[in-house]
Amino acid sequence: MDAKTMIDSLSSQFTGTIYDVSVESDIRIIAKVKPENVKDICRYLKDKLSFGHLCCEFAVDYPNRNEIEVVYVIGSYDHPVVLTLKAILPRDNPEIESVVPVYWNANWYERETYELFGVKYLNHPDLRPLVLPREMLGEWPLRKDYKGFPNKTARNLV
């Protein structure tokens, strides 16, 4: 199965929830998804299209568009296609369904995305900060408008 048939199968299964599909090459697909359906789509990808490997999951902050984009990069052990899914969330209340029930390794990705961007994952088994200290929760340091950088630093350099 090549990239084209895969994305056709996916779009026919989930009409309306997958949009802006672009097949960049035989092994690269990029698509946007509706945030509500992300878990079902991942389930379908894993069960039917043998996308068994969530390579990474992260977020991108777009303050001008007032959006946070959650990006899933999903690969496979059986075929060379890599699929990039993007879910667009509102910046003031980013909430999305957790994909941990489908891809268990999303657990720490989601915890990290949560502590750095403030994306709230619904039904995540254990949504705690992963590497940041607890006091910094709520500062979302990787958002573009983060202000908490130390300004009293490196006195011998500046």
């Binding site: 940041l132 910094m136 340091p141 983060y146 908490g148 130390p150 630093t153 490196a154 006195r155 350099l157």
Partner: peptide, 16 residues
């Protein structure tokens, strides 16, 4: 440890 080095403006390091 002296001045922050490459991380002198990092959100996660303690300075000074």
């Amino acid at each position: 440890a002296i001045s922050g080095g490459p991380f002198y403006e990092s959100y996660s390091t303690a300075q000074n």
